Simulated assay, not measured.
Amino acid sequence: MKTLIRTGALALVLAASAAAPPALAQSTPPAAESMFRATTLNLAAYGETRVAPDMATITLGVMTEAKTAQAALQANATRMAGVMATLRRAGIAEKDIQTSGLNLNPQYQYEQNLPPRLTGYQVSNQVSVTVRDLARLGQAVDATVSAGANQVHGISFGLNDSTAAENAARQDAVKALQAKAELYARATGHRVSRLVTLSEGGGYSVQPPMPMVTNQLKREMAADSTQVSPGELKVRIDVSGLYELAR
């Protein structure tokens, strides 16, 4: 009786072992095998277009000094109110004027072998202004300096709507990618069968701010109107694609 039980158990184990290989073989993903059988190209290309900007962002401000912090703040507020009023009269909308920095710093005099001596306070108030009509840019800078702004830190140019420029760059990028794929295919004795994947990167980015005027005083701007040259912006789109080749 014991012999029969042992024989049946052994037969059951052998049957299970024989069934295992097909199960393991079925667990191998077919996609991995097919990838090794296919000839593919993984390529990258880019497209660029240049366009004239139609907007600018300028950073300007007011710096004042006084013996007390309150006096420095009050003087700064008065002058900045004049600058803001001038910007509004120049046609700059409220939403296009944003405070970008407000600082109050004590000022000290340092002498050898003596502790620092407080001499007063300095207040700096900066705003970022978006000008959507470049024809008004130079005039707006002149007006704000005349109204009391004594700091103009930098200017950057941009686009109100970059969609058209980006789409033109996309088309150039895809054409360049396709041409590269066809070149590699011919060089290796293949033809392009299909585009498997396509991805995009890059895009339009605002031009970095350029230094314009620092600690600019009214008398330095009085002789001539400020001339600003916007130049051109470069819009770039990067693409990458996976192509399958065939003989």
Rank of each mutant, 00 (worst) to 15 (best):
G154C: 10
K95Q: 11
L137I: 10
T78M: 09
Q74K: 15
K180G: 07
P230L: 06
G231H: 15
A246W: 08
L24S: 06
L114G: 00
P21V: 15
Y46V: 00
L12P: 01
N76W: 00
F157S: 00
A181Y: 09
S100M: 07
E220F: 13
Q112I: 09
T40S: 12
L87Q: 01
L245S: 11
L233R: 05
I237M: 11
G158H: 08
L159W: 12
T119G: 06
E48V: 03
N150Y: 11
L242K: 15
I97A: 06
A20W: 13
Q112A: 10
N103K: 12
T39M: 10
A140N: 14
L87T: 01
A69Y: 01
A187N: 15
T68K: 03
I155R: 01
K234E: 14
A23F: 15
V145M: 03
L4H: 09
V174E: 14
V129P: 06
G82D: 04
A143C: 08
E111P: 04
F157H: 03
F157E: 05
S193A: 11
V152A: 04
G203C: 04
L159P: 07
V141L: 15
R50Y: 03
S193F: 08
E48S: 05
E232A: 12
E232M: 14
K180I: 03
N76K: 02
P21F: 10
K175D: 13
T40C: 08
L104S: 13
Q216E: 12
V62Y: 01
L114W: 08
M1L: 06
A32F: 12
A31S: 12
L195M: 15
A223I: 13
S240C: 07
Q126C: 05
R191Q: 13
T78E: 14
T86S: 15
L73W: 12
A18W: 06
G158A: 09
A187P: 06
R219Y: 15
T39H: 13
P53S: 02
Q74I: 10
M212Q: 07
V239D: 04
P22G: 08
N167G: 06
G201C: 04
E244H: 11
N125A: 14
T78P: 00
R79H: 05
E220I: 01
V206C: 05
A168S: 12
L198H: 08
T99W: 07
A169Q: 04
S229H: 13
T226A: 08
A173P: 14
A25D: 12
A81L: 03
A75P: 01
G201D: 08
P116G: 06
V213I: 14
L183K: 11
G158T: 07
A19N: 03
A185F: 06
Q98V: 14
T99A: 11
G91P: 01
K2L: 10
A69R: 15
A56H: 00
Y46F: 11
L114T: 09
Q139F: 06
T119D: 05
T163S: 10
T3G: 09
Q74W: 00
Q227P: 06
T130M: 11
A66K: 02
N103I: 12
T86F: 01
L233W: 13
R136V: 09
A52P: 00
A18V: 11
L183M: 09
E200A: 07
G201E: 04
D133R: 10
Q178Y: 11
